[in-house]
Write a protein that binds this DNA or RNA. Structure first.
Lengths: 350, 350
DNA sequence: CTGAAAGCGCTTACAG
DNA sequence: CTGAAAGCGCTTACAG
């Protein structure tokens, strides 16, 4: 589709050029013009070239809307993430965007701010637009169910709400959480807090499971009071984290389940003069830029958001190709980026 | 448009419900069904309620594509930013997304990675989709010109390439740069480097102008060798910054023109053991999260990306309403967030 | 190899 | 207040 690029002569008239005008100018029927332009079906080479030249001259850009209506197949993908201001979701969107363009899809992107109501609203807009498929970081089980009911292929990414009902691309949260927790135990920590957003989502659930596994392997009992659910709201999370650090027996290590929570822990520790790692060890999910800039750097599980985005587009395209293929869950492994935010617990705490 | 939400009974058949089926089920014509559903034109209250109930029952969601084709008016906005992985652009997209949804527009978002070729490609896709308007952080003068030629309203945001030809929403870069540079001069700095990405874009040009103004006001000559253009590529920028700090007579203060460059300066200073602010003062544009987490915190010009996004949607909607109103450039002021990354120059350098 | 015709799913003057 | 008809811009069997 190299016609109509910036730089060549534009439409002279007030209305946008249509295929009818191109056809008339070329002295052929609309059918022939269409075949010449799309390359589908026959058109004499001579005719084809003439039609294309004229289209270019007129600045003709085919109406994707009309084409979609006629073909009953859209070239747009719907993408719904929780929070574009969060670098994790932004990276995810960036990965999806790139990969979508490579496959000649345009991307309709929305941000639901974590609200199930907005999520439902956006899902309906996607149905209305008859997008070819949707990639979503779900905040409820309804989205995927709703879209599926409307025959729109869905891929759940990062979190899974509809296991078995639609495809998903996830990170191996349990295994990364297990390893990281294991390292803290190895260092001698016993009071290791897990600060998570939500425990019902697969992300929270699996990270918690990995955390528990590590304790089980080490033969150490889990102190449930150290597993805190801080929610999505940044301010509320800060309060929760502050409360945790202000306990009479504060944890000697904190495992933050995402970058927002890690930021809350970092700031709370800083305010209290809790030196990291001497007084408090910190590890987290999501390797975002500040974690390698602060001193000490924060040991983090790096989820390659861009790769996650790309994988979800691939999965979605396969699903669009083969609507009846068995549902698949793709598990991407995460990498631990060790830095210097962990140390043995303070000796008084041993 | 509360019909068809997740949760209610879905379409029974294999095909998606159309208005024809709704009309038949309700025993009315398609015309009447359409009027009942949209609320445009007359429909007996009784009929209207019956049609709506049936639509809901069938899980009918009107085809936005068909509606668009018929009405010749789209409910989608095209948005094109340079780099979603950059928190500034991500915040911008978040602001646009919110505001667009509030106005019942869906957002088609793309990321051009700073490439004029991708930019042209995306612009063409937007024309093909006949979007109602486009918001772009341009990387060339061509996009706005191309879209305008195709009768699509455009708002340039953050940077301006087509002054006078289309609307723009910008930050008052010159004034913020002037103030910040003035503060460094006031502290006694003379060798103040300005590290910028590009000098031909309005962002770079205006920040440079503000920098020069401050020198002029202070009656201090500008040392042009300290104005370095580091480009967009992160790695190349690092090399450029390293070279700057490794000069025999390094600057005593650096003014970074954006968050990526500030990160490069911060890391380079850290590697060299250049203590901030004792040995090197640092100020920057873009207040992103790490700047308030590192020690010392970095003094930054905060451009409210979300507000910028919202303002650009407002401007675009006004333009869509009034295509012939005079072109407008909206200038948003920026706020300086003072932190502790500045100090008088080291005494040996005075 | 080409063109006339039908039709994708809607909406909207228009006639009644 | 309602329905038949036209048409938005395209594509694609189908007949020639």
């Amino acid at each position: 589709m190299s016609s109509g690029r910036a730089g060549e002569p534009g439409p002279e008239s007030d209305r946008r050029a249509t295929i009818k005008e191109v056809a008339e100018a070329a002295g052929v029927s609309r059918s022939t013009a269409s075949r010449a332009l799309t390359g589908h079906g026959y058109a004499a080479p001579q005719v084809r070239d003439r039609v294309r030249a004229i289209a270019r001259e007129l600045g003709y850009v085919p109406d994707a809307t009309a084409r979609h209506l006629r073909r009953q197949a859209s070239q747009s993908l719907g993408v719904l993430v929780s929070d574009l201001s969060n670098p994790f979701y932004a990276g995810l969107a960036a990965g999806i965007s790139q990969q979508a363009r490579r496959r000649e899809y345009t991307m309709m992107l929305a941000d639901d701010g974590g609200s199930p109501d907005v999520e439902a609203e956006v899902a309906e807009a996607f149905v209305a637009l008859r997008v070819a498929g949707v990639i979503v970081t779900p905040v409820s089980a309804q989205v995927s169910e709703y879209l599926t009911r409307h025959r729109i292929p869905v891929v759940e990414v990062d979190r899974q709400f509809s296991a078995g009902a639609c495809d998903a691309v996830l990170v191996d949260n349990a295994s990364a959480a297990r390893t990281l927790t294991g390292q803290l135990l190895q260092l001698g920590h016993r009071r290791i807090a897990l600060v998570t957003d939500e425990r019902h989502w697969t992300t929270g659930r699996d990270r918690l499971a990995g955390y528990r596994d590590a304790f089980a392997v080490a033969g150490v009992p889990v102190d449930d009071s150290l597993v805190v659910t801080a929610g999505w709201d940044v301010d509320a999370a800060r309060v929760e984290v502050a409360r945790l650090l202000d306990r009479p027996e504060p944890p000697t290590a904190v495992f933050a389940a995402n970058n927002v929570l890690a930021e809350a822990v970092w700031r709370a520790a800083d305010e209290r003069g809790f030196t990291i790692p001497d007084r408090l060890s910190l590890v987290t999910f999501d390797d975002v830029s500040w974690m390698s800039m602060v001193r000490p750097g924060v040991t983090a599980v790096s989820q390659d958001a861009v790769a996650l985005g790309e994988a979800s587009v691939s999965q979605l395209c396969e699903r669009i190709q083969s609507p009846t293929a068995p549902v698949r869950t793709v598990l991407l492994s995460a990498t631990i980026v060790p830095r210097t935010s962990t140390a043995p617990p303070p000796s008084t705490s041993r």
